[in-house]
Design a protein around this nucleic acid. Structure first.
Lengths: 146, 146
DNA sequence: TATTGTTATACTCTATAACTATA
DNA sequence: TATAGTTATAGAGTATAACAATA
C-alpha cells in the first residue's frame, strides 16, 4: 500500500491545507476560531434562532455551540434573549457588529474558495461536489457500524 | 453565503467523517494513533531509513515522527540503530511484529477505502484524484502567501 | 423522566522553541 | 554555524459526563 495514494490520507492532507488557507482569513485577521466562524455563518440572515438550531446547522455539538456563543457574545457580535416559548432555551441573534463582521469576511473567504477551485472545469466541479456527498454518506455508514 | 455549500466547510466535514471511519480500524482495534499509523505505513517495505525520511513521506514534523517512533519502539514494532554515516541520526526499521501488524491492517483499511469510493464510477474517481491534487496545490499557494 | 444549555474535567493534539550531540 | 533528533511547555481542540432549570 502506498500512503501517497491512499484516499483517506490524501483527503486528510488536502483538508488540512484548505482549512489552513481558509482559517488565515477568519483566524489571523479577525481572531475567530473555526467554531466561532461556523456559528457566525449559521446565524447570518437568520433572525432569532435557538442554540439547538445552530447546532443542527453546523455539525458542532451543543457544548461547542455554547462556548462559541459565549465568545461571540463577549465580543459584542451576538445577543441572547430568553425564549418566551421555552424557559430552558435562548433566542440568539447577530448584533449589527456581527452582521458587519460577517459581511466583511464572506467576500474574503469566497475569494479564497474561488481560487482553490480555479483549476477545475465546471464539469469537474460538478463531479467533485457529487463525490463529496456520496463519499460522506458511505463514511457515515462505516462510522455508525463500527 | 450558505455554509452547506461552502467548499472548505464541506471538505472539512467530509474529511472528518472519513478520518473517523478509517481510524476505527487502526485506533480502536490496534490502539495506534493517526501518526503511529502513518509512520508504520511509511516504514513498510522500506528496509532501514532515517527519521528524516519518515518525515518527508508523511507530512508529519520531526517532533511528531520522533514521538511516534518512540511509541512504536516501546510497542516492539520498530527498532532503532545508530547510523554509521551520521552520529546524529538513527536508522529505523520495522521489526517482524511491525510488519505483521501492518499486513494485518492494510487489507482492513483498503476494504474501507473501497467501500468509501464504491459509489463512484472510474471516471469520477479519476476526476476526484485530479481535483485533490489541483486544489491542494492552490491551497499551498494561499497558505504560503498568507 | 426527558430536554436545553452550561460547566467541569481530563485527554489528545498542535505549535514553538530550547536543548544535546554531531557535522 | 547548521543539522538530526529529543524534550519541555503551553495552548487549542475534543470527549464525556455531571449539573441546573424547565418541559
Amino acid at each position: 500500500m502506498e500512503l501517497e495514494k491512499f484516499f483517506p490520507y490524501r483527503l486528510a492532507v488536502l483538508a488540512e491545507q484548505v482549512s489552513l488557507a481558509t482559517a488565515q482569513v477568519y483566524r489571523e485577521r479577525f481572531s475567530l476560531s473555526r467554531d466561532d466562524w461556523r456559528v457566525l455563518a449559521a446565524l447570518a440572515d437568520q433572525g432569532e434562532v435557538r442554540a439547538a438550531d445552530v447546532k443542527d446547522r453546523t455539525t458542532l455539538d451543543k457544548m461547542q455551540v455554547s462556548r462559541a456563543l459565549a465568545r461571540l457574545e463577549a465580543a459584542g457580535l451576538v445577543a441572547r434573549a430568553a425564549d418566551p416559548d421555552d424557559g430552558r432555551a435562548w433566542r440568539v441573534r447577530l448584533l449589527p457588529a456581527g452582521t458587519a463582521l460577517y459581511r466583511k469576511i464572506v467576500p474574503m473567504v469566497q475569494a479564497r474558495e474561488d481560487y482553490l477551485l480555479s483549476d477545475l472545469t465546471p464539469q469537474e466541479l460538478e463531479v467533485l461536489a457529487g463525490a463529496i456527498d456520496k463519499v460522506e454518506a458511505r463514511a457515515r455508514q462505516l462510522t455508525r457500524q463500527g
